[in-house]
């Protein structure tokens, strides 16, 4: 028995070493940094320990802006992208002709470079003194007045960021959900039809529970991904996100690390730990909720 255990641990050792070196150790390190006040990476010195870094970060208007942006992004894009992906997947799996073509079309954004897509979005939404983007032309067409989505009001920029994020994460979700839907044994639908079940009830009582593990997986990874959003904002608004008022938490951490040649690793660490705590909390809540609503079989 003892020997068996030892063997088991031995097999796990390489993975544990890796995780320890590249995951656990940095995490602990960041945690320690976040309590070292005034750390200087050049001289590797610090003044003292305490919670001042957290206090600074939590009072920094840039951080609060980033926090707000991130939360808005998460709260809007995760439900919208998952819901839309579900809708499209259901539609896709109920049409037979050209199904594969549509699947490919919906998957294309996934294999396209984020920055390239960002550029296209910028062109679509941008407004310059000389020309309107395509979206503004459309708004004009319907009788509205043009809006600068890239350098204009906050809500417009937020709209583009959310739109873009949904656009980028959707293909993967559609892919996962179409295969989840295809994996539901048709015999359940047959049984339900013979039992007189209507389409809507069939969807909520059979389809949804059957694909709930996949849906749950998408929601959890969606939350985590959205909380870690950064490159999307850069693609749309450039690297000076604080100035644009469109920074995210990860963007803030990044800025803190590299801004002003050398930066403020302590503040960055504190912000990173705050993000970690948020993601952990949300994931735990997700897991608790899933206990009731996700059916593994």
């Amino acid at each position: 028995m003892e020997k068996q255990n030892l063997k088991g641990w031995l097999y796990l050792l390489p993975a544990l070493l890796f995780l320890g070196a590249f995951l656990i150790y940095p995490l602990i390190d960041v945690f320690i940094y976040s309590f070292e006040e005034g750390y200087n990476s050049a001289s590797q010195t610090f003044f003292g320990t305490g919670s001042y870094n957290y206090s600074y970060v939590l009072h920094d208007t840039y951080f609060l802006q980033a926090l707000k942006n991130t939360f808005i992004l998460v709260i809007i894009t995760v439900p919208v992208s998952t819901g839309l992906a579900l809708l499209i997947s259901v539609a896709l799996s109920s049409i037979k002709p050209l199904q594969e073509l549509f699947q490919t079309v919906f998957f294309l954004p996934y294999v396209t470079n984020t920055l390239a897509v960002g550029l296209v979005f910028m062109i679509l939404f941008k407004k310059t003194p000389y020309s309107d983007g395509l979206v503004n032309l459309l708004i004009h067409f319907f009788g509205g007045s043009s809006v600068d989505f890239i350098e204009g009001p906050y809500w417009a920029k937020m709209f583009v960021l959310c739109f873009y994020t949904v656009w980028v994460v959707m293909p993967f979700k559609i892919l996962i959900l179409t295969s989840a839907l295809a994996g539901v044994n048709p015999v359940y639908y047959n049984a339900a039809r013979v039992d007189g079940t209507g389409r809507i009830r069939m969807f909520f009582k059979i389809t949804l529970p059957m694909i709930s593990p996949m849906l749950f997986y998408l929601v959890i990874t969606g939350f985590i991904g959205a909380f870690k959003a950064y490159s999307d904002a850069v693609a749309l608004f450039g690297t000076n996100l604080n100035a644009a008022g469109m920074n995210t938490i990860v963007g803030y951490v990044y800025d803190m690390l590299y801004r002003d040649s050398g930066g403020y690793p302590s503040y960055a660490s504190a912000a990173a730990i705050i993000l970690f705590a948020i993601v952990l909390t949300i994931t735990c809540i997700n897991l608790l909720v899933s206990k009731k609503h996700v059916h593994y079989h």
Partner: peptide
């Protein structure tokens, strides 16, 4: 849905959830 038939499938098709 409209036929009022009861059916037992070969693999029973009980809803697992």
């Amino acid at each position: 849905q409209k036929r009022g038939v009861g059916m037992v499938f070969q693999n029973y098709a009980l809803y697992p959830h």
